[in-house]
């Protein structure tokens, strides 16, 4: 079915915003990723695939694999921690629901950098955790400036972004579906596996993608919690722009991340007929 839809006049401002702030920068980045740079760091306007070839270098591939692996683990951890929370919030009513939702959103009202520094003071070598461990007569734990610090920071920061889409897809589910499944002879586990899970799998998938992709490109968390030794994709990308002055290569990394996101969304659209709009 095809219908002609006109843009309401009030949406023009947003459209202009989208074009100037999203589409245009993205086009510039995309274009720049096919350019070369001079020894001095200035951009040379000649078409080349050098940047993408360079990405296939073992140095970058290692960073890519490490970053994907960490983001994957952090996403799965967010799922494991977030799912029961979302499930509980979708089913409980009254005060506990409002309280739970407020607690879930409080981090959003606190500045991101402040929260990360909170983690620093928690895990630092003389941080709260280590003082507690010393008090108990246990050896110190070094979490800050290791990949575990990055992992913890990622899970902590992205958890609400995964709970919300799962919560909203569970909330949309008719509560009588559970009863109907019980009624027709399904155990609790069968009800979950055969009725609840198939009906929220799009929410789960979309939520995971929306957490996984930004984790891949995350810069601040690895920078502040990972220390100098831990190289992650986002950090490498930022270094290309601001330290190594290789804007074309940085653009190639950025483009690669965007292509990964689009590919994931395209796959999701292929798998489910209802598509993206339905899942959100």
């Amino acid at each position: 079915m095809k219908t002609t839809q006109y843009l309401p006049s009030s949406a023009w401002a947003f459209l202009i915003w989208l074009i100037t702030m999203t589409l245009l920068p993205f086009t510039i980045i995309l274009g720049m990723s096919f350019l070369e740079r001079t020894e001095l760091g200035t951009i040379l306007f000649s078409f080349s695939l050098r940047n993408y070839q360079q990405l296939l270098d073992w140095v970058y591939l290692k960073v890519l694999v490490k970053t994907v692996w960490l983001a994957l683990m952090a996403t799965l951890s967010c799922l494991a921690i977030g799912f029961p929370v979302a499930y509980y919030l979708a089913r409980v009513q009254g005060t506990m629901k409002s309280l739970g939702l407020i607690l879930l959103f409080i981090p959003f009202w606190t500045n991101f950098i402040l929260r990360i520094y909170g983690i620093v003071s928690l895990f630092g070598s003389n941080g709260i955790l280590n003082q507690l461990l010393m008090f108990l007569g246990l050896p110190k734990a070094s979490i800050l400036y290791t990949r575990w610090g990055v992992y913890f920071g990622l899970v902590y920061n992205y958890l609400p972004f995964l709970v919300v889409p799962i919560y909203s897809s569970l909330e949309k589910l008719d509560p009588f579906l559970r009863e109907a499944a019980f009624d027709l002879g399904a155990t609790r586990f069968q009800t979950f596996r055969k009725v609840i899970l198939p009906n929220i799998k799009e929410g789960l998938f979309i939520g995971s993608i929306f957490v996984f992709i930004p984790m891949l490109g995350e810069y601040v968390i690895p920078d502040l919690l990972g220390g100098a030794k831990e190289a992650f994709l986002g950090k490498v990308m930022v270094e290309q722009f601001f330290i190594l002055q290789d804007w074309p290569l940085g653009s190639a990394i950025a483009t690669m991340l965007s292509v990964l996101l689009l590919a994931a969304l395209w796959l999701q659209n292929r798998w489910t007929s209802k598509g993206l709009a339905h899942a959100i």
Binding site: F176, A180, V195, P198
Partner: peptide, 11 residues
Amino acid sequence: TVFQRYALFPH
């Protein structure tokens, strides 16, 4: 049971 709003499995 036949539920009031049927509760058919949408998937």
